[in-house]
Every structure is written in C-alpha cells, then in structure tokens.
Design a protein around this nucleic acid. Sequence first.
DNA 1: CCCGAAAACTTGTACGTACAAGTTATTTGT
DNA 2: ACAAATAACTTGTACGTACAAGTTTTCGGG
Lengths: 235, 235
Amino acid sequence: MKEARYRLIYRLLKERIQQGHYRVGDLLPSENELCRDFTITRTTARRALDELVKEGFIERTRGRRSVVTERRKALGLLSIQGFSEAAGEGVETEMLTPPGRVEWPRDLTFPVSEAELARPCIHFRRLRKIKGRTVMVASEWFADAGLDRFLQEDFVEGSFFRTLSRRHLIEITRSSQELHAMAADGEVARLLEVAEGAPVLRICIKFTTSHPLLNIYSRLYCNTESYPIGNQHFY
Amino acid sequence: MKEARYRLIYRLLKERIQQGHYRVGDLLPSENELCRDFTITRTTARRALDELVKEGFIERTRGRRSVVTERRKALGLLSIQGFSEAAGEGVETEMLTPPGRVEWPRDLTFPVSEAELARPCIHFRRLRKIKGRTVMVASEWFADAGLDRFLQEDFVEGSFFRTLSRRHLIEITRSSQELHAMAADGEVARLLEVAEGAPVLRICIKFTTSHPLLNIYSRLYCNTESYPIGNQHFY
DNA sequence: CCCGAAAACTTGTACGTACAAGTTATTTGT
DNA sequence: ACAAATAACTTGTACGTACAAGTTTTCGGG
C-alpha cells in the first residue's frame, strides 16, 4: 500500500523535530508555507499537522503557527511526582550498571518474543535521587536490534527515551504496566536505603516502540514515602 | 462563540450512544446518510466521527461503517489485572457504605475547589472481590452537583462511571493519580484480610468530568499480592 | 443451492474555494 | 515616542468534487 501524502509530510516534520531542527518552543512553517514547499493543498498540510498534534509533538492555536512542545507531557506515563518538575534542583541520576550485554532474564513479567530472545540482551540499571535521597531503582532490558554504538553513547540530556527519539528516530507506540506493592528485599532495601520489609512499589513496564524488534522491558522499585508516583491523562 | 457544526453532530451522535440508542457493536449511519439527515457535507460528517474516534466511542475501518466500541478500553485507566476480563466469574462488588452525605474529608490528596466545598459531599465505599478474596477497597467522594435521585439509583451494570455516562451524560475528561506503597493499617488490613503492616498499594485519583462542578475523588487500597494493578496505553 | 464475479456501497485521500475568527505586524494620528 | 486603528497573516470551519481502496450485497452460471 502506497504511503499517503499527508503521512510523508508528517514523517518529514516529525523527523525535523526529533533531530532538533525544530526545538521545543519553536514555530513550525505556516500551513500555506507547507503548501508551497511540498506542493500540496491545505487539507493535506492540516492532516499532517493534526497527526503531529495527536502524537503530542506540537500544539496549535487559531491565528498562531504550530508550536513544538515537550512530548513527554502527552504520554501520561507514571513518573515520580516533582521529579521532572524540580529538574536540576537536587535531582540526579546515577548509572549503577552501565549498558552492557547480559543473559535474558527469566521473568520480565511480559512475554519476550522469539525474535528478541534470538538477539543479545542489553541491560542497564540506574538510581534516581532527589536531594540525595534515592527514590527509585530502574532496570531496563531490551534486545540488541542493531542500534550501533548504543553502548558507547551518552544519553541525550540524560534521558534514555530522548536518545532513542533523537538519535535513532524511535518512538514509544504503546506501553503496558503492572504495579505491585511489596516488601523490600535485601538488595532493593539497601539501594533504596529503607528497612528490609518496608513497603515499596514495583512497576513492571513493557514499552513497544516504532522499531519492530525493539521492546523495552523496565522494572522500577520506588520508595513512595516522600515522593509518590503519579501521572495525568487527558481524554 | 457559536458552536461548530461538526461539534453539534458529534454531540448528537455521542448522546445517542450514551443513551443506548446505539449499543456496543452497532453500526452508525454511513457518512453519506449523515450528510442527508443533517444537511451537511462529508467533510463535516467525517470531522464529527473523527471526534468520536478520538474519544473512544467508535472505531472505523475503510469500507465498513463506524462501529460503537466499549469506551473504557480507550481510557487507559489503572485496573485490576484480570478483573474486567474475568467478568462474572467469581468477580463481585460489595457496597460497604451506600451513597450518602458526609462532611468533606480533610485530605483528598488533590485540592477541592471552593465551589465544590460549598455543596454537600456524597460518599460511598465498595469492596471488590475476586473468587471470594477482597482485592480492593474503593472510596469515592464528590460534590452533590444536582444529580437528582443519584442516591436512590442503582448503578448501571454495577458501574459508577457507566451510570454517569448513560443517565447523566457526564464523561471523564481528565484524571490525575498518585500512587503510594504503604503498610496496611488496622481498618484497611481488616477489610483486605491481610496482616497489619503488609504492603498495600494506595491509589488516589481525581477524575475531572464534563460537568464543571463534578470532580470525583477516589481512594483505592489494593492487595496486589495475587492480582496486580495494571493498564495499557496507545499513543 | 452454492460459489465466484460484478455491482453497489462505504471509508480514505486529495484536490480546490470561501469566509470566520483569531494573532501579529504595520501604519497612522496625536 | 506611544497608543490605537488598520492591514496582513494564520488557523478553524464548511462547502464541493473526484478518485482510490476497501467491504457488503446482488446477481448469474454451474
């Protein structure tokens, strides 16, 4: 099936945003400019922009051009309350286990496909701290789907997802998660600096991406004592 | 500002779905039929249908008419894994405290507006069980915003949200939630049939609705031992 | 009666036009 | 030099047309 015209314009604009050609806050070309540049009608230009709105890349206001926005806001993922908000202020991420190859773990809560198991597994583990207090241990696993040099790279702005988006043009298309309240066992308790048996929140996530072989399996242990986990949704 | 034409058609169709004129699985009129019936062009009809898709009321396939769908699927709310799936089979809801007026609680996690506080508070509490095992205690609070006879009514299909949608045409437009892993205290432990101090998950939610005075403040205590809490998102 | 081809229908994409309703830039009057 | 009026620009809505690409229904031959 041939790719629709609006779809092509949408992809082009999305890539420009992802690659930093347009940054958050920047204005996109007006609809009429897009019509000229790509030799399309306004209907088609608007359709492409609509798509970008739906995916949270831009916002539009009548009379104004489209503005590039922070996409994460639109994702509605669970996050530590007051983490990204208080960015920089006493918030830090520590790489506990740098990215490297490991055996695929047995139980990732979600089933791992044969195609994924056929490839090596990349894993890394990080600590998230607020004002020196560790609030989360985050472990990630995913198949080495030919993302060259991934192991050597530093993360874009310290963010794994931003790295995928900006450098590899891979976006999250779906996520499933499972939550458990549980008693902290030895290692988790030590890392989160809580007593053994203290209640912690375990979040297991499977992120499906636009790359067919790349699913990210995430396991988070959170101390929700002072900083709860939360999110927002718009319907 | 005058209501847009497509907006009106959208509302009309939505109301027909909500009121049961069209049920889940039913086919909506074709675009051309809508054009005839409402004296509009296909552009406008399609715009209205697009809106319904966005809000999860219908699904569309090329060549086929629009099909009415179960909206809850599109909401991506946290829910007990295997609760709605195993519907009927050993799944039950017990009304612990029937709907009635109470004083507004002090701390609902989210701020309550003056306009809400000026009205009486309605509260009820339910137990959710799977195979006889209590897995959740759910408490709800909201302002008495003139939903007449609410206290007397039975819930539509046992669902609070379905009651709001079908009988009062009120939809959820937004939600914020906060999660805490915590040790079960006396009453919660007793209701969930776990030891005092056992780890339980507390979820505090604020649902914003299409009714300006109606926000629903929800507090859930979950025993995630056998049935984890989870959800799914599509972007 | 059943099956496959054809017709009728339905949604998706794309063109083009016009005006309404906002925002931004420019001009004009004091 | 500043403020208000004006013009230019930009997005939102709505009209209309045409064809592509699916699905459902109808019809005809065996």
